[in-house]
Simulated assay, not measured.
Amino acid sequence: MAVTNNIMVGCINFTAMLLSIPIIGSGIWLSSQPDNLCVKILQWPLIIMGLVVLVLSLAGAVAGFWRIRWLLIFYLVAMLALIVLLACFVAMVYWVTLKGSGHPEPSRTFLEYRLDDYSGWLRRWVQSYRKWDGIRSCLRSSSMCGGLNQNYRLAQDFFNAHITPLQSGCCKPPTECGHTFVNPTYWISPKDMAADMDCLRWSNDQTQLCYSCDSCKAGLLANLYKEWRRVDIILGITLVALIAVYLAGCCAFRRAKTPHLSRKYKQGSS
Rank of each mutant, 00 (worst) to 15 (best):
S203C: 06
H103T: 08
D35F: 12
P173Y: 13
M8I: 15
S26T: 04
T238F: 09
L51H: 03
I23L: 06
K226Q: 13
R229C: 04
L51W: 04
A59M: 07
C251D: 12
H103R: 05
S142H: 06
P259A: 03
L224N: 02
S189I: 15
G100Q: 01
T180S: 15
A222K: 07
L139A: 04
Q167P: 02
A155W: 11
C11Y: 14
V93F: 02
A78G: 04
T109E: 15
V182A: 01
R230T: 14
R229K: 03
K99G: 03
P190W: 03
P22W: 10
C38A: 08
F159A: 07
V245G: 04
W187L: 05
K257S: 07
S212W: 00
L220Y: 05
W132L: 00
M193L: 15
V53T: 14
R69H: 10
W70N: 08
L261I: 10
Q43M: 14
M193A: 15
Y246K: 08
N5K: 14
V39G: 12
V39F: 12
W228Y: 14
E105Q: 13
L85E: 05
T175L: 09
G25Y: 04
M49L: 14
G27R: 13
W125S: 13
E105F: 10
H260Q: 10
G27P: 09
C177S: 05
F158Q: 06
T164R: 04
I83A: 02
R69W: 01
S142K: 05
R153F: 08
S32R: 15
G219F: 07
R124E: 12
C199F: 02
L209M: 13
G146W: 12
C170R: 12
I243A: 14
R255P: 01
S203D: 09
F181Q: 11
F159Y: 05
F253G: 07
I48D: 04
G60F: 00
R201F: 02
L54N: 07
G64M: 09
C88L: 00
G147N: 10
L82N: 13
A161C: 03
T180R: 15
C145W: 11
L51R: 00
S119D: 15
L139W: 00
G134S: 09
P174Y: 07
S142I: 11
S143L: 05
H103L: 03
F253A: 08
A81N: 01
L72S: 05
G100V: 04
H103N: 08
E112D: 14
